[in-house]
């Protein structure tokens, strides 16, 4: 058993605090773009500031969700399945992070 309880606790709270302004910003942006088409949305992310903030929201959100899901798995699963589920949980978060980082890079910076 690792001694990482406090580290996890701090990261979970810190990511929640970071997500609050990012979520507000994203909600505001989505409301502004209600009804706009695909090109308008792509153009919005193509702005590097928007791309950066959007990428940060997904990446921080994915890590925050990973910690939350790991808490649930640790609470309720006590068999050999626990380690497998924790690994899958970690893998899902990593895939989300890589996918969004790659997408934002291509749309906002390489395009």
């Amino acid at each position: 058993m690792s001694k990482k309880g406090t580290t996890t606790f701090i990261i979970q709270r810190a990511s929640a605090v970071l997500l609050m302004p990012l979520a507000a910003w994203l909600m505001f942006s989505l409301i502004v773009y209600v009804g706009a088409g695909y090109e308008a949305a792509r153009g919005w992310i193509a702005n590097w500031v928007n791309g950066l903030l959007f990428g940060a929201f997904i990446i921080i959100g994915a890590w925050h969700a990973r910690i939350g899901m790991a808490e649930i798995i640790t609470d309720y699963i006590h068999s050999w399945l626990k380690d497998i589920l924790l690994f899958v949980n970690w893998l899902v978060a990593l895939c989300a992070i890589v996918a969004v980082a790659w997408s934002v890079y291509n749309i906002s910076f390489a395009g």
């Binding site: 058993m1 990482k4 309880g5 406090t6 808490e71 609470d75």
Partner: peptide, 11 residues
Amino acid sequence: LEDEFKLYRCH
């Protein structure tokens, strides 16, 4: 108390 269980299972 420093591990994932002894303290931090309090939700």
